[in-house]
Computed example of a mutant assay.
Amino acid sequence: MPGWVQLFVVVAVAAAIVLVAHLAGVPGRWAPLVIGGALGLMTALVAGAPRREDGEG
């Protein structure tokens, strides 16, 4: 996908997370923690587990 589409998707997902956190009643000072955790989890799920190089061991 082009870079601008990727940027739009990331911003849209972040906005959705903010909306869900707001509707769930998360206090404003905790919102960055919730958003960061959710985006970190999404990154880990997309990236997958680390792989070993063929030359190791």
Results as ranks from 00 to 15, higher is better:
L45E: 00
P27A: 12
V18H: 14
A12M: 15
V9A: 14
L23G: 03
R51H: 05
V26H: 05
G40K: 05
L41A: 14
A31R: 15
V5N: 00
P50F: 04
D54F: 03
P50S: 05
L45W: 08
D54A: 10
A15D: 07
G57P: 00
R51I: 01
V34D: 05
E56I: 00
Q6W: 09
V26F: 08
A16F: 14
R51E: 06
P27S: 07
G3E: 08
G37M: 06
W4P: 00
P27F: 07
Q6K: 15
V11D: 06
V18T: 12
I17P: 03
H22D: 10
M42S: 10
A14S: 11
R51M: 08
A47I: 06
V13N: 09
G57A: 09
V34K: 04
P2N: 13
G28R: 12
V18N: 14
I35T: 11
V11M: 08
A31D: 04
A16G: 12
L33D: 07
F8N: 06
V34N: 02
A24F: 07
R29A: 12
Q6S: 12
M42W: 02
P50L: 04
P2G: 13
E53Y: 00
F8L: 12
L45G: 07
A24D: 12
A47V: 09
A14P: 03
I35Y: 03
G28C: 02
W4S: 02
V9C: 10
A14T: 13
G48F: 04
V9G: 02
G3P: 06
G3H: 03
P32S: 08
M42N: 05
V20S: 15
V9L: 13
R52I: 00
L33N: 09
T43A: 15
W4N: 01
L19R: 15
W4Q: 08
I35S: 00
A14D: 03
V10Q: 12
G36H: 05
A24E: 12
W30S: 14
G25A: 11
L41K: 04
V9S: 06
L7Y: 06
V26E: 12
G48S: 01
L7C: 01
L7V: 02
A38N: 05
W4E: 02
A47P: 00
A15N: 11
A47Q: 11
A49C: 00
I17Y: 01
G36R: 07
W30G: 04
F8T: 05
M42E: 01
G36V: 06
P2H: 06
E53P: 02
G40N: 09
L39H: 01
V10E: 15
V5F: 09
A38M: 14
A47W: 01
A12H: 11
G48I: 02
A24P: 00
H22N: 10
A21C: 08
A15F: 14
E53T: 02
F8E: 05
V34L: 13
G25V: 10
G40R: 07
V26W: 07
P50W: 02
L19M: 14
G55V: 04
A16H: 13
G36D: 02
G25C: 06
E56A: 11
A21F: 07
